[in-house]
Nucleic acid binder design. Structure first.
Lengths: 152, 152
DNA sequence: GGAAATTGTGGGTAAATGTGGGTTAATTTG
DNA sequence: CAAATTAACCCACATTTACCCACAATTTCC
């Protein structure tokens, strides 16, 4: 799975979002349209995984030490908010209200391909966040080593 | 792949750009016309890779640690904007609106060969940026060692 | 310099996609 | 248990996109 790209999408009155057609075949083949949405713990956006991808992640999260507060926090947030979602016959997803609220999703949203998953943002918040990212000089200081030497 | 050269190009009303003929055979042979465009994080321009070249880059970026902010930033910016594009029967690319907006592309654009990839600039911005580059004294101070000893 | 080939440009049309909503089934609530 | 709300499923229309063809401009070759 190599999801990528920006996709501006409109939520309809029922809270449904149409998955762009170019991703549908991949999703159908890989997980019969069964997806899992949860929240991102660092930003007010949602994460959307094909079921199979999510399951391996959930196992890793569950395996974290139960008496470590940071681990418990992650477990409660990620697993706690993870919701099964299926594509309907028209290639649309119904996003549950609690998740829509968390990410502040209204009419205009953005679907971001991120490799093995997607991110779902309110368009406003995405544009604002992107501007912040662009403004940040990537002052090599906090960059992981892998990044320092990355050649595009 | 060793793309090089400056190519002034016009976008048509639908946002399509004709790839100069001399690159077409190379692109067709190397990736059947499958390309990936994304943004440059330092300048308001786009990067255009043959699919195969891009995939190795995406793998490297995806492998970065998810809870590192600098890594997430790069992932969102680069993978988030990376969009698959195919040459049409006339050797043209349809540049998606979000990417055109980012780079401020209107009618007149410039395609820059850059080795394994191309850069796509608005002509105005390219000319201005080039002037800046030329105006900068290359006071050897901040040059990396590799550059100090480079012999042209 | 003229003719032929190649390249660049524009736009029409059919097919695919996105959007809205109606109806029935399921679930929740009083 | 009845009523109300929500979700699932389906159909139909509007819009967009991909694909194709035709012409204009340029370059190449004789």
């Amino acid at each position: 799975m190599q999801f990528r790209g920006v996709n501006p999408i409109n939520l309809d009155a029922k809270g449904r979002m149409a998955i762009p057609a170019r991703y549908r075949d991949t999703i159908t083949e890989h997980c019969c349209g069964h997806l899992v949405a949860t929240i991102d713990t660092e930003e007010r956006c949602l994460l959307l995984y094909p079921l199979a991808e999510w399951e391996v992640i959930q196992e890793k999260i569950e395996a974290l030490p139960s008496f470590n507060p940071a681990a418990r926090r992650i477990q409660r947030l990620l697993i706690g908010h993870a919701t099964d979602i299926d594509m309907d016959g028209n290639g649309r997803l119904l996003l549950p209200a609690p998740l829509r609220d968390y990410a502040g999703l209204n009419k205009k949203i953005v679907l971001l391909g991120q490799g093995n998953k997607f991110e779902i943002w309110s368009e406003d918040l995405w544009l604002a966040t992107r501007e912040e990212y662009l403004a940040e000089a990537d002052g090599g200081a906090e960059l992981p080593n892998e990044l320092q030497n990355l050649s595009l």
